[in-house]
Amino acid sequence: MHVVIPYVVAALLFALGVYGVLRRRNAILVLMAVELMLNAVNLILVAADSTIKSALTGVQPEAWANPVPEPRAGAIFALFVIVLAAAEVGVGLAIVLQYYRLRRAVILDDVELYRHDHERVTG
């Protein structure tokens, strides 16, 4: 198995995610691009997880590097990231919907961060 393949796939996906975040104006599409980036990271974690065993062959593991009998935590991390992504999507979509309720649009360019004059925002 050539591990460089999933790594390159992950790199390309991450790049696509960055491109999407910067290119898209619609908040939902931006969230999708963020999901792409998260999955790229997950892919790297899983790929590293599945190859670390063979990569470490012949290396005497240090005590701090080997907290559990089988050090394959990459998959666990991937699971955690998936959970985080789910939470992120939940809160993010709630914000998007609330914003849509206020503004009838989900265009990020129109979000004004520094103007706290509610009258002007709504009027």
């Binding site: 790594y7 390159v8 992950a10 991450f14 910067l22």
Partner: peptide
């Protein structure tokens, strides 16, 4: 530019 830079950089790094 930024996305291509990131992708190129990461790819080169990992390869």
């Amino acid at each position: 530019l930024i996305g291509g830079g990131v992708g190129l950089g990461l790819t080169v790094l990992l390869v």
